[in-house]
Design a protein around this nucleic acid. Structure first.
Lengths: 176, 176
DNA sequence: TATTGTTATACTCTATAACTATA
DNA sequence: TATAGTTATAGAGTATAACAATA
């Protein structure tokens, strides 16, 4: 058993960008030409705020993602969660067990496949997720307050095109 | 001692987006409204390619970032690296030791502070970094081939505004 | 034979406390 | 007293191999 208890610590300092030593003197211009560097820095910045505000629900980003997909896809299976969130099956087991122990989710028998199990939010889980989603949406507004709604949409669109390559029209692998 | 050897494994599967099970059936639309989610997914996608292509140099993303900052900021100190890259000092020690053992970097005495030490690339380090940077820049072109140069610049600009909040004009904390 | 969920486990990443030498 | 670099170590995150039950 890998999980010590139901409630996890969730602590993390997250270092809110303190310019203790000099930092403006350092030339980071080349790294800033790399999308991976910029995307990772941006993600970590937002995640640090996410951790703070979601601590009240004892939800890490991955827990919230799992609940969100279950909420919007009732009956989703463990494997489907893994595929959608890029989590390895062994690493999901413990998370689901904790969420089930907390009474947030329920495992029901799959309608057609007796190996699988459909995942659902409990009544308490729905209440928790509703509050958590509101917090997440508010966090989005707060951390991206420097960007206009249109800039935010542009950012999301561009990011999606990075991690979910355009399989759309004008593709190169068409049969004729 | 935390490092087992000079050369590290660098192995990682990185799962190149295989749609093994269904995945298009899963509704991820809410998560995709969250910048943190999108930024993290994009970063992980690029980093997985980065890991593959940088394996020949035995450099992880963090190693490359360290070398890049030393290359462009000769004499930079350990603390400055930590500040610029958001790495905790204890976690940098091992990386620098490995790079020094590999003959890639050199530690020299700091000109004014005898506690600190200036970091520099060795001749071999400069050759290695030059090749690595070329690989990184090519990777940027390849992984972002769906985006025009202008879209790429827009993406970088927006990401920087997320992780490095605009401290510029029209700020709210002015004295008058 | 392949897939779902699972256990056990190893490895990597990230964080804290505490020490020394110097400022 | 505070800071730079370091050690030791704990905790969280990510990976592989292998198994039973079912498809």
């Amino acid at each position: 058993m890998a999980e010590p208890s139901t409630a996890r610590s969730l602590k993390r300092s997250s270092s809110p960008r303190k310019a203790a030593t000099v930092e403006g003197d350092i030339d980071t211009s080349y790294l800033e030409t790399l999308t991976g560097y910029n995307a990772r820095r941006a993600a970590l910045t937002i995640i640090s705020v996410f951790l703070e505000r979601m601590a009240q629900y004892e939800l890490r980003p991955v827990d919230f993602s799992v609940l969100s997909l279950i909420a919007h896809n009732p009956g989703i299976t463990s494997r489907q969660l893994c595929g959608a969130l890029d989590i390895l099956p062994p690493n999901l087991v413990g998370m689901l067990r904790v969420l089930e122990t907390r009474g947030v989710i329920e495992k029901r028998e799959h309608p057609t496949d007796r190996r699988a199990q459909g995942l659902h939010l409990s009544a308490a889980g729905k209440k928790l997720y509703t509050k958590a989603q509101r917090t997440a949406s508010q966090l989005e507004l707060d951390t991206l307050s420097d960007l206009s709604p249109q800039e935010r949409e542009t950012l999301h669109s561009l990011l999606r095109r990075v991690y979910r390559p355009t399989r759309g029209p004008a593709a190169s692998d068409q049969t004729m």
